[in-house]
């Protein structure tokens, strides 16, 4: 068994106004990865490449042990994909779509599909054109989940959902992971969802992966320190400072390498550390993007 469900190695793609900069990304089997980036950062391009929908100009893509795009037919049997721009036939009902998907995928699980129908409060006989946005998202998710894919790829699954529908969707995603062989990649700019359910986090900005790590490590290493410094002293030459605020005696700064050793280094430099705070994933994401755009290396 391959320990990675997805392996991207130096994958690049050039468009006229956008370039994917030779990105590398591994998704461990059985994990759930949150893929975070602002609009236009390259999330959807990356996702389409790993699905074989777009062919990369450079680099290698392995999905469930198959090389993409050459072996995409084999790989796609085991992939479930849900995206915002996915269209169902407005005039057909959900039952028709379920039969259609069932005809394509041999692993279709009808009992599970019916269970999801109830859970998502959907009616199979209802025509797609009568569904709300939330119901459409849940319908496409049902179609993707019920063929029991080994890899589930979701492009912005929770965007535009009301709070109740979002929780229903997140709960359904978590249940997929009860089977340790199943892997999920979902892109989002809602960092709260990513923070809640993901094991791994990847940040993408301007076509480059700027962070790819375990979520717990990330939340642990980034801290905000509130310090008191002696007048005239500057914190700018201290190591691992990503962002700094204030210019009086009381200042606060963000570090991305917090450890007891670093704490000691700061104290020895004459800082009086008054508080150490955790950051939310959103704060970490924004600070890393800003630091990178200011030309700092993290």
């Amino acid at each position: 068994m391959n320990s990675h469900a997805v392996e991207l190695h130096n994958v690049g793609k050039d468009y006229k106004y956008f370039r994917l900069n030779d990105i590398s990304l591994n998704l461990p089997t059985g994990s759930i990865t949150g893929f975070i980036g602002v609009n236009g950062a390259g999330k959807s391009t990356t996702i389409r490449i790993l699905l074989g929908l777009v062919h990369q100009d450079r680099g290698s893509v392995q999905v469930l042990g198959q090389s993409m795009p050459d072996q995409q037919v084999l790989a796609k049997r085991e992939i479930g994909y849900v995206s915002e721009d996915m269209r169902l036939y407005p005039k057909a009902n959900l039952a028709w779509h379920m039969q259609f998907i069932q005809a394509i995928y041999p692993n279709w699980d009808q009992a599970y599909a019916e269970q999801l129908l109830k859970r998502f409060d959907l009616r199979a006989e209802q025509k797609i054109k009568g569904l709300s946005h939330g119901q459409r998202v849940k319908a496409t998710l049902l179609l993707a989940l019920a063929h029991r894919p080994k890899l589930l790829v979701l492009d912005e699954p929770t965007t535009g959902l009301d709070p109740v529908a979002r929780q229903e969707v997140l709960a359904a995603l978590m249940e997929v992971l009860a089977d340790e062989q199943r892997t999920i990649l979902f892109s989002s700019h809602n960092t709260l969802d990513v923070e809640q359910i993901s094991d791994h986090v990847a940040f993408i900005d301007q076509g480059s992966i700027i962070e790819s790590t375990s979520k717990e490590d990330l939340l642990d290493l980034w801290r905000r320190l509130r310090v008191r410094i002696t007048p005239g002293q500057s914190v700018s030459e201290l190591p691992h400072i990503v962002q700094q605020q204030g210019n009086g005696q009381l200042q606060s700064f963000i570090t991305n390498r917090y450890s007891p050793a670093l704490h000691q280094t700061y104290e020895q430099a004459g800082l009086e550390i008054q508080a150490i705070e955790y950051l939310t994933l959103e704060e970490i994401f924004v600070a890393s993007i800003q630091a990178r755009r200011e030309g700092k290396t993290l």
Partner: peptide
């Protein structure tokens, strides 16, 4: 570990 993660809808690694 997995069951609690699913119940709480939080990540396995947490």
């Amino acid at each position: 570990i997995r069951q609690l993660a699913i119940d709480l809808r939080i990540s396995v690694i947490t």
